[in-house]
Design a protein around this nucleic acid. Structure first.
Lengths: 157, 157
DNA sequence: CCGTATCCATTCCGATACTG
DNA sequence: CAGTATCGGAATGGATACGG
């Protein structure tokens, strides 16, 4: 029996993150939640996903602590799926993906959905990685610390 | 024949992004590249991935314009895989994932790899989503524009 | 050392039918 | 409406063998 590689014990935080949300649906579901989706049917309609896979993904996201199920809200006997603080902390991830997609997968005038500041209606500024003092950072300015090999159990991921 | 749902014509930039890098390996490969990996063997050793899958993923990433193959660099007859500008633009995505993972998958003292500012050795500040004027933004402050339904061909993703 | 090819297991995904 | 159950097909991932 060959088991799939897991990254949930990786010493790299990116690995542990990818282990949970590294698939085609999770981040789209989270995006819908940021956009106000709460009910199963809302997710299903707006995503166009099959019910079984939506069901499975939602369960996985709940297990991962990204969503929580609240018994009801309007009185109907059904559940609602609500982002936890951990799930809400995915906001920068989703925004970063959005901006990357905007920059590289759309022709200049091509219609697209956009993220606006609710308070003044302006488009979101480019998300920049910043150093502690606020300076913008790029990959060349950064270095990844390696964990003490004696304590690390496995390779990088 | 049942075909897998594609998001590459979605009107949402997040969908198009996920369509390309929404899997378990792509972003880890990109992360290694930010960390200096260039050669097939380097990726393979540090990721611990099987060669065939690394090969397939690298090819897909090259096809997507995220990596480019440069014929050589040190004289050996082999290729090197280098991030294109489009690939380098994934830096905020990787950093956002890293910070999310740090915040939610590590115990306080648990050893982990970290991203440091090469110039002064300080840890990276928290990545924040900012409005055009620099104010931090959170999900509650944002709203997603819907594309004109007449022009949109499909549902949200 | 750098990959590609093959083979197989597992997982993911989609359509549909079904229950409450 | 809100899911679960089942099924088949596709994609992914892993081990290994092989050629440049």
């Amino acid at each position: 029996m060959v088991e799939r590689t897991r990254f949930d014990d990786s010493e790299c935080p990116v690995g542990r993150s990818v282990d949970v949300i590294g698939d085609r649906w999770s981040l789209l579901i989270v995006r819908e939640a940021f956009d106000g989706c709460r009910r199963f049917g809302e997710f299903q309609r707006s995503l166009g996903a099959a019910k079984n896979i939506l069901s499975a993904r939602l369960r996985a996201l709940v297990d991962a602590g990204i969503f929580e199920v609240t018994p009801a809200s309007d009185g109907s006997a059904y559940r609602e799926y609500q982002l936890t603080p951990k799930g809400r902390d995915l906001f920068p991830v989703v925004v970063a993906l959005r901006q990357w997609g905007e920059a590289h997968f759309f022709a200049p005038g091509e219609p697209r959905s956009e993220l606006l500041d609710r308070r003044d209606g302006r488009r979101l500024d480019a998300l920049r990685v910043r150093a502690a003092d606020g300076r913008p950072l790029d990959p060349d300015d950064t270095v990844v610390t390696k964990v003490d090999p004696a304590r690390a159990q496995r390779a990088m991921p």
